[in-house]
Simulated scan of single mutants.
Amino acid sequence: MDIYDFKNAFLIGFFMAFMIGPVFFILIQTSILKGARAAIAFDIGVILGDISFILIAYYGSRSLLEEIKDDPRLFFIGGLILIIYGLITYFDRQNKKEALETTKAIEVPVVKSNYIKLMIKGYFLNFINIGVLAFWLGTVLVIGPTLNMNPTSIFWYFATIILGYAVTDLGKILLAKQLKSKMTPLVIYRLKRIMGIILIICGVFLILKGFIPNDKIDELIL
């Protein structure tokens, strides 16, 4: 995996860490109420949930990837999944009032210093979100063929995504108090729509990549 792939993978992890949802708020809230160690334990569970989804997406689609790895329809499928996920994020019916209620709902104190329970809580809270599986499935379907289905390259690519995610989450944990004061319902609402737009744009780009030569895409970008 070259430095360009490493940079892209790290950026994916960085942006994933700012996907607005229950995990985002519980991580911040846990850090404030129980301290950094408790928040890190919770985050480890979340990351393990992501790893589980990556494995499910990879091994569940491996035979499909091997069969159509040079088929442009693969990019179409992956791009379509990301677009659908982006549309769901953008048109989420959760309004500002509901966002405020969500924020308040997670202020219930967790079990003091029980890191195992926090880890399990993080794992299952992430794992029950089918949208996360859809995201990883779309990513695997697109990234696999670009890395020539090389298991080592795929491993390091997704390991880098997880690294970017974990490092950014660590920053969120350390800056939890400042982030909490800035995450007003209006900011949450706007961020969710921005993330939805980013996912839609990425999905459109991937679909174009499957049907338009790379040099033509470069010309469109430039």
Rank of each mutant, 00 (worst) to 15 (best):
S31C: 00
F10Y: 04
M1S: 09
F205A: 15
G144L: 02
S113T: 07
D215W: 14
F124P: 09
V46W: 08
T168Y: 09
W136K: 06
L208A: 08
L118F: 10
Y85A: 13
N95S: 13
G131M: 05
A36L: 02
K180H: 06
Y85F: 14
K34S: 09
N150Y: 04
A17Y: 01
K182C: 02
P109W: 03
I154D: 07
T139C: 05
G203Y: 00
L55G: 14
V167M: 14
E66L: 15
K121D: 09
L27P: 00
L222D: 11
S61F: 11
T146C: 09
D71L: 09
I84M: 11
I162G: 10
F155E: 05
M119V: 01
I3H: 05
V23N: 01
A176G: 08
N214C: 00
T139I: 06
M1P: 10
I198Y: 08
N114L: 00
I198M: 14
L125I: 15
T160S: 15
Y157D: 12
D92C: 04
N148V: 10
K180Q: 11
A17E: 01
M119D: 01
Y123W: 15
S31A: 05
F155H: 06
A105I: 00
L65E: 04
R62N: 13
I47A: 15
Y165Q: 04
N148L: 13
S61G: 08
Q178V: 07
K209T: 12
D169L: 06
G49K: 07
I128L: 15
S61C: 12
A38M: 01
L179F: 13
A99R: 13
G122I: 09
L33R: 02
L82G: 00
K7R: 05
K69H: 14
L80P: 12
P22M: 00
F53V: 07
G60Y: 03
